[in-house]
Each structure stands twice: as C-alpha cells, then as structure tokens.
Design a protein around this nucleic acid. Sequence first.
DNA 1: CCATCTTTGTGCACGCGTTCACAAAGACAT
DNA 2: ATGTCTTTGTGAACGCGTGCACAAAGATGG
Lengths: 257, 257
Amino acid sequence: MATGRTHRPATRSRGIPEATVARLPLYLRALTALSERSVPTVSSEELAAAAGVNSAKLRKDFSYLGSYGTRGVGYDVEYLVYQISRELGLTQDWPVVIVGIGNLGAALANYGGFASRGFRVAALIDADPSMAGKPVAGIPVQHTDELEKIIQDDGVSIGVIATPAGAAQQVCDRLVAAGVTSILNFAPTVLNVPEGVDVRKVDLSIELQILAFHEQRKAGEEAAGDADAVPPVAARKQQQPSTDQGPDGDVPAVMPA
Amino acid sequence: MATGRTHRPATRSRGIPEATVARLPLYLRALTALSERSVPTVSSEELAAAAGVNSAKLRKDFSYLGSYGTRGVGYDVEYLVYQISRELGLTQDWPVVIVGIGNLGAALANYGGFASRGFRVAALIDADPSMAGKPVAGIPVQHTDELEKIIQDDGVSIGVIATPAGAAQQVCDRLVAAGVTSILNFAPTVLNVPEGVDVRKVDLSIELQILAFHEQRKAGEEAAGDADAVPPVAARKQQQPSTDQGPDGDVPAVMPA
DNA sequence: CCATCTTTGTGCACGCGTTCACAAAGACAT
DNA sequence: ATGTCTTTGTGAACGCGTGCACAAAGATGG
C-alpha cells in the first residue's frame, strides 16, 4: 500500500484475528532463537518452517501487524521480535499470582518461561496454613487470606489457578472480585466469570482423551482391512486384548484433588 | 524440507469433526458429575450450561454420534456416558509413558485424572542416572536407556514429553521409532514427526502471552474511553525495558492437577 | 538506468464450524 | 386416542480461517 515508511503502525491492534494472536507467541519463539544465533533477516518461508506453519499464513498474520517485511529480502529479525513483543504486550511487566501450590503449582512456579517473557511471579498462594512461609522456587507461599491484599498492592491482573477442581470457582470469584481480569485455569472445571474477564483453560485429561480418540481410530482402520491413508510405518504389536473391564466399574470420582 | 506436511486427508473415515471430538471430553466430565449425583436424564440445555457451550452446538455434536436422545425428555445420562467413553476409546486401557521427570513430569505422574479415564502410567523415564530407581508417585523412575524396551513390552502408543526443549525432538524420535503414535508435548518446541503420528502441544508460556495480549487491549480501551464491564481496580503495571531476555532456556509447560 | 530476480502482501475461493430456527418425534394428560 | 407440550435433530445461512496464486515492491547486477 502507500509507500509508507517502515515506521507506521497505522491500524491499531483493532482487527487482529484470534487465530493470529494465538500464533504470534510461536513466531516470537522462533524469532528469538534466530536472534540468539545473530541471524539478521529471515524469509517467510524459513520462519514458517521453523514455526511449523504455512508460509502464506505467516505472511497474512504479519500483514495484520503492518508491513514489516522487505520484498526480495524478508523480515528483519530484531525488528520483528520487537514488534510482536509490543503487540502481545510483553514489553511491560506482568505480575502474576499462582493459587494452589501443589505439585502443579510448584512446577509452574519453577517454570523458566515466565521471566523471559515479561511475566513475574508476584506471589504464590495456598489455602493450607502449613504451607505458609515455606519457600517454593525461592518465593514464600502466602495464605489465601492475603489474596485480595496481594492483588491490589501489586496491581495483579493475571491469575493462575492450579487448585483442585472443587476450589477453583471460589478462588476464581475472589480473584475477579479483587481485580484480576485474566485467568489461566488448570483445574478441570468450567469457570463462571463476569463479562470482561478472559479465561483460558489447560486440561491434560482432555488432551489425552483427544489423543486416545485418534489412536483408537488409527487402530481401527488398521485392523478393519485398511482403506487409505497412513502407510504402515512400523508394523508392530501394540494392542493387547483389552481385558474387558466390564461396564467401566471405574473409579468413582472425577475427583477433586 | 519445504514440505513439512503434517496434514491428514481430513476427517475422513468417521464423520466426527475435530472440533466435536475436542468437546466430547468436556461433555463427559459434566455427565460424570451428573451420574454421581444419580441424575437419570438431562436436557441439552442443562448439559450445555454445565459444559459451558451452546445447546445447539451440543445437540449437533451428539448427532454425529447417533441419536441417543429422547425428544421431549432429554438424554439418558448413563447411556451417554457409555457412548462417549466408547467413542473416545476410554473403555480400553491406555498405557502411557512420561519422559522427563522434573517438576512438571512429577506433577503429571501425580495427576489423579489419569486412572479415572482409562489412562495408566506405564513408566516414568528420565535421562538423569541419579533419578533411576527413585520412586515418584509410587512408580520407580527408569533410565532413558530402557525407553524402547518399555514401550515395546507394554505396547505403549501414547507418550508424554515433559523434558527441556533441547531434548524434546530427540526423545520424540526415539518414542516414534519405538512405536508410539500419539504424543502430548509439554516442551516449548515444534516437534517434527512422520505422517501418521499425532502430536498435541500444551504450552503455558503461549497461553499467558495470549492473555497478556487481551489484557493489554482491555487496558488500552479503558484508557481511551471505557463504557462497560469490569470496574477498573488497580490495573497498575510497571514499565520495564525488555532488555536482554537471556538464554530463552525455555522449559516445559504445564498440566492440570 | 534498465532488466531480472526474489519475496512480500493480498484478493479470492473454499471448507469448516457455529448458530438460528423450525419441523418432527415422542411423552404425558385427559 | 387425541391433543398439547417439551425437546431433539437438522437444514440452511453466515462468518472465520486457510491456502493458492499472482501482481507489486524492492534488491541486485550489468
């Protein structure tokens, strides 16, 4: 479009498709790796391969941010890293609280990907009084009673819920009431939040079930005299006569803890 | 390399859309809860509310499985639980191996949602020799050298990667070579796998970045001229020149507890 | 300055997923 | 039986995301 100079954000971040937003972190990671290797520029083709996406898709994604590439050359790595970081809001510091310091909460607290992306663990919160004061990942755990105070004092707007399912909604309500407007939920429950609050969910159980579905499908086709697709990569025995475990007399609870 | 095609010919064999498959576990969870409360039947409206989706969508999803509802009444909870479980392949036993027993791997091993869904942790594997034999979640950790043997002996077809990013691809290759055809990846890396192998990725860093994007957008609008929802609390954020972000030593992400 | 070559940016078509809206199906009361 | 009432199952419209294909933009070389 108009021979606009390279510096022209032009259209604000108004119309960026959700799907594109979800891929920006992916591009950012690939670009960061290139940056560390001091690669000056990269073509859409190369970057797309590194990020595992289609090059046309990548170019279209970047087009929503503006015209940051140079035809015949590619994209300036450093510049793009900056632009994407800015667009994602990673040039500012985001204090985060983690509620529920069990196995998972501790793993999250130790997660290295936080700091390098502008996220800072402002506090670790747990309902168990015996945990209070105990340091996890170098940060002392605080009791739930302090929740509201912490959020307000530090201006926390992002909360991570890693509690058992049974406590999730209650914790969520308190976080929202205290001012949190974005929640990353690891508890296997559907959270109810007022309008204006974003919730993203991560659920291992669901991911595994989806894999199981496809796995079953693959096994079924294989056995059902095949059809098409999926050439036998490595014929091997895998299915053991699933001992008919009856009507799934399984474990009772979806379980909280 | 210009062709890292990771696409399948579309949802061919069975007509169930991918989006629907991804929601089935959600319905299953809601139904299981109802089942425990001995609720005999449920309408699409009620179940949809419990699962956090639109009722029309839910009905259409179920229509792909067949006509299991009764007009004027609703769906039989127990029957639907069985049908969905069967469709997802949860009526059989799925041995799973977890590779990389760090904070995250340990959290995964302790995850209670496994057993209740037909998943069984067949083995915990780590490259650190000093971990060998040490029990985690009641299961002794085994060394990477045993990987191939374990997979073949137990007929494992699902693998979970919870290693640092640097080791992920290598572990993935070994898993696939040994016979694994479904992988749940927690390492922040794009895995390259041959056709016929499914990979699902869980990445905490990406989820947080997406939240940050929306959070920034909300803050921006607020400043420009808000109008509705969410009372602005102390949305204070400190500035911090995103200087050097160090060795993006990204480590795995997360999972639900 | 012009020709050629590379790579971006995007118009367009297509397919998937979502949602609406309603006819058909069955339960239930009379 | 028959009518009414509830709720499913789905046809159809719509919108979003994806990928192709190509013209425009700019680099590069003569």
